[in-house]
């Protein structure tokens, strides 16, 4: 299949089942979608609808039973594990519900860690710019356990942005935050995505957050039901 390269992400007929027989779970059941560069897409669905599994597959964190994912025209599952990991670090930024910060590293170190893993030169000014944008310029030396929930998530956003990936995947980024902090994180995320020209795919069950997206994709029972 020839991919349309204006689409930064193409998901083609993705399938992932867990278990067998009676316990067979169709986590992702023949899902296809395409996402354009620079777009902010929200994936909504009830819990257990398979949206997280879909996001993990898109991000190459897991391999599907069938189907393909192209990111910037690259068929990611054609890559061997180590090359896939490298591709993931370079091209995909992840933001998780539970932040996934390394507790023994300070904010700055957490942000530059993925860059260091690939021996990419860390441009101090770039990281500073991201920190400035995200409102953590004075927290660079702070350890994660001294941060509030919102600040932790902002650190994770900064980490995703610093690598200047092709696409940012966020799994319920405001799931653990209160309503006010949620606005704080979302507004920053949205303005950063705009400022840095990033493409964002975000899982959410929150109606109000989905409204901020340019496009909303609804998932139910592992299938795309509305777009």
């Amino acid at each position: 299949m020839k991919t349309d390269s204006s689409k930064i992400l193409v998901v083609d007929d993705l399938v992932k089942y867990y278990g067998a027989g009676e316990n067979l779970v169709r986590a992702v059941d023949h899902s296809s979608l395409q996402i354009e560069r620079g777009a902010f897409t929200a994936i909504v669905g009830r819990s257990g609808s398979g949206k997280s599994t879909l996001l993990h597959l898109i991000g190459g964190l897991d391999r599907p039973d069938e189907g393909k994912v192209w990111i910037e025209g690259k068929d990611i599952f054609s890559l061997k594990d180590d090359r896939l990991a490298q591709f993931r670090r370079k091209k995909i930024g992840f933001i998780f519900q539970d932040f996934n910060l390394i507790p023994s590293l300070n904010v700055w170190e957490n942000i530059v860690l993925p860059l260091g893993l690939d021996n990419r030169r860390v441009k101090r000014e770039d990281v500073r710019e991201v920190l400035e944008k995200i409102g953590l310029a004075d927290k660079a030396e702070t350890m994660p356990n001294a941060l509030s929930g919102g600040q932790k998530q902002r650190t994770a956003i900064a980490r995703a942005l610093a690598a200047r990936p092709a696409i940012i995947l966020a799994d319920e980024p405001t799931g653990n935050l209160d309503s006010q902090t949620e606005m704080e994180v979302m507004s920053l995320m949205k303005s950063c995505v705009t400022d840095f020209g990033q493409t964002l795919v975000m899982i959410t069950h929150d109606e109000a957050i989905a409204q901020m997206a340019d496009r909303v994709i609804e998932i139910a029972d592992g299938k795309v039901v509305s777009d």
Binding site: M186, S187, K190, S191, T194, D195, E207, A208, I209, Q211, M212
Partner: peptide
């Protein structure tokens, strides 16, 4: 609002 880097959302 979005052109200025802002957001808008409504809640029932």
């Amino acid at each position: 609002l979005e052109r200025q880097g802002g957001t808008i959302s409504a809640r029932q």
